[in-house]
Design a protein around this nucleic acid. Structure first.
Length: 654
DNA sequence: CTAGGGTTAG
């Protein structure tokens, strides 16, 4: 407030200025072209005004505030419509809602308050400051609206999680007879994409064609992105190919779409095409491509893209670094993940969370604890995802006490646990064999347990062979989520391992009758930049004979050093020999045999599987790692298993 | 005055 008084004194002393307005004008034209805001202020106001000579005050006061000091100086303010507009634009650019409101009030009292253009700017200002209620109010109260008014409001909604409102407004706009332009289409397409509404998107696409905007880069890119978000990649590709003038954004929309769909190979291929076409990949591109590589566990291609990024000179900021870290972690290279983490220019909360997730996936307990505690000391404030990551990591590493302690710690950080935190704690207790405690924990939860909570308990019952509690948990899962095949299989396995074959059969039958489908298991292995996929009992593979021979060979060797097949993981109704036969050709075994045949001796073997590894394969892999003296890294849906010299990093605990 | 693309958990 003292500042205001100073300025007021200055303002009432005309010998210092010609007018407040001319100063304000200069202020803007000068500041707009200057590097740092305080520097601009100093240059402009360095000598004549007392308060502005105070350098400390000057440093603390950004331009927006200084400006407002002039504006609230009542009598001195006599702006024209274009000055109001400039002021509002600055407030928008700097996202300064408070100052924007002051200008708004002043504007309302002026004789220009009915002018359409500054009102449009006001709508945009409030929208960019995430204050849609205010934006709407301006829109409703302005006497005359044009197409820009509608577009600014629609854009505001589509950028502030108001896709539905945006689309409703769009139809209303058409009813009032306003023609949408390329800006309008860009925004409504974004809204349709956010709602994943392909039907709406196609209609809008028709509108774009009619109005001749289909090949506008902005509209075209928005179309590509809209189709990508609706999962309609083919239609997106058609629009993309038609674009005579593409840019990075068009490419990114396409690449990100495939990355989101888990189509990593296509995303990588497009990345190459983009570069060949002479387009410079941006932060967005790299971020998507790394996510795509992480998804398919493609370490070598990921490294190759990383080299491109280093060559292109892009800095390792959090937004790309986080996905890069995640890519290395999910591709099995935890050391590279840590290196990226250490080299990040600035770590944000997602960086720490990603690092904790990496440790969780690899079951590294000591590192988890160190990382979390370092974060509490020197890092950003942990959020609810942080605790999820840390709790999952404790669960995967068998750190029961640490996990329970972190759960208690959430209170200190004033973070209310959501359902996923409870799921993780049930998992933590259950894995540790504390089944009764897990059950008690569920009963005492302050929120209603979901299917996921019971599923965690069921999984623990399978692990610790607890039939009675397993049945109880399964009943809850069936009731809450009848379409998931996982619980049926788990329960059937629990029955089978307890020798209750007829019950196991009953559950299987129930599953088949209710139309619940089991996801077909498959595994991938990467050999020299090519990814090879295997399904169980694959007879169609060109190398099937060699793979079979190799595996039989290996089986003989591991049996010599103590491997005994455990057939309780396969369907009970086959006879014993047939079961053993079946087990021989689980997809991960085929992938392993293939890798042994086709990769250089001594190099690590990286296999990925789409469901959890079965217990018998896990045992077999441990023996194989010893017999062939190779490191085998297996990624399943849950985590990584590093097999080395006869044991696994998960400590048989997954 | 109004437009399009990216990250962590389960």
């Amino acid at each position: 407030m003292t500042k205001a008084i100073h300025v007021k004194n200055c303002a009432t002393n005309p010998s210092n200025f010609n007018s407040i307005i001319s100063i304000a004008r200069q202020f803007f034209s000068a500041v707009a072209g200057l590097e740092s805001e305080p520097e601009g202020v100093r240059k402009l106001f360095g000598s004549p005004i007392g308060v502005l000579q105070d350098k400390d005050l000057l440093k603390k006061a950004p331009n927006g505030e200084l400006l407002v000091l002039y504006l609230i100086d009542n009598g001195a303010m006599d702006a024209d419509a274009s000055l109001y507009n400039q002021l509002l634009k600055k407030c928008t650019e700097w996202k300064r809602l408070k100052e924007g409101r002051v200008v708004h009030e002043h504007f309302l009292r002026s004789r220009f308050s009915h002018y359409t253009v500054p009102n449009n700017t006001l709508i945009n200002m409030y929208a960019k400051c995430e204050s849609m209620g205010d934006a709407r109010k301006v829109f409703d109260e302005m006497p005359e609206r044009d197409m820009v008014s509608w577009t600014a409001l629609i854009t505001g909604y589509s950028q502030n999680e108001g896709a539905k409102e945006g689309l409703v407004l769009f139809t209303e706009m058409l009813r009032f007879g306003f023609m949408p332009n390329q800006f309008t289409f860009g925004s409504v397409l974004k809204a349709a994409g956010a709602l994943e509404s392909g039907g709406t998107g196609r209609q809008l696409h028709g509108g774009c064609v009619k109005c001749g905007y289909e090949e506008n880069v902005y509209v075209g890119s928005a179309l590509v992105d809209m189709y990508a978000r609706c999962g309609l990649m083919d239609e997106g590709k058609i629009v993309f190919d038609k674009l005579s003038c593409k840019n990075e954004v068009s490419w990114n929309g396409l690449i990100a779409g495939h990355a989101r769909k888990g189509e990593g190979e296509i995303a990588l291929k497009l990345f190459c095409e983009m570069k060949r076409g002479g387009f410079q990949p941006t932060h967005f591109t790299f971020s998507s491509v790394y996510a795509a590589c992480a998804n398919i566990g493609a370490l070598e291609p990921g490294k190759w893209v990383h080299v491109h990024m280093i060559k292109s000179g892009l800095e390792l900021i959090a937004f790309i670094g986080n996905t890069l870290l995640d890519m290395y972690a999910k591709s099995g290279s935890i050391d590279d993940a840590r290196k990226v983490f250490d080299r990040l220019l600035k770590k944000d909360v997602v960086s720490w969370n990603s690092m904790l997730t990496a440790y969780a996936q690899h079951g590294l307990g000591k590192e988890t604890v160190e990382c979390f505690e370092e974060m509490c000391r020197i890092g950003p404030e942990p959020n609810e995802v942080t605790f999820l990551c840390a709790l999952t990591a404790c669960s995967h590493a068998g750190l029961l006490d640490n996990g329970m302690h972190y759960f208690e710690l959430m209170k200190k950080f004033k973070i209310e646990p959501i359902i996923s935190h409870y799921v993780t704690i049930v998992d933590l207790l259950g894995r540790s064999g504390q089944l009764d405690r897990a059950e008690k924990f569920i009963n005492e939860m302050p929120i209603e347990p979901t299917a996921a909570v019971w599923k965690a308990l069921l999984g623990a019952c399978r692990m610790h062979k607890n039939l009675e509690l397993g049945v109880y948990a399964a009943e809850h899962v069936f009731e809450l989520d009848p379409h998931d095949s996982g619980p049926h299989i788990l329960l059937s396995n629990i029955y089978a391992s307890a020798g209750r074959r007829s019950d196991a059969a009953r559950v299987r039958k129930l599953m088949n009758q209710s139309g619940v489908k089991k996801e077909p298991a498959c595994s991938w292995v990467e050999i020299e930049n090519a990814v090879h996929m295997f399904v169980a009992n694959d007879d169609a593979h060109p190398q099937r004979e060699e793979i079979r021979n190799m595996w039989e060979n290996i089986t003989d060797k591991i049996k010599e050093i103590g491997y005994v097949p455990d057939t309780s993981h396969v369907l009970w109704f086959m006879d014993h020999q047939e079961r053993e036969e079946r087990l021989q050709y689980h997809s991960e075994r085929l992938a392993l045999a293939f890798a042994l045949l086709n990769s250089p001796h001594g190099s690590p073997i990286r296999i990925k599987k789409n469901i959890r590894v079965c217990g018998d394969c896990h045992t077999a892999f441990k023996f194989v790692s010893k017999v062939v003296d190779r490191e085998i890294i297996l990624r399943d849906t849950n985590r990584f298993h590093h097999f080395r010299n006869g044991s696994c990093s998960c400590g048989d605990y997954w």
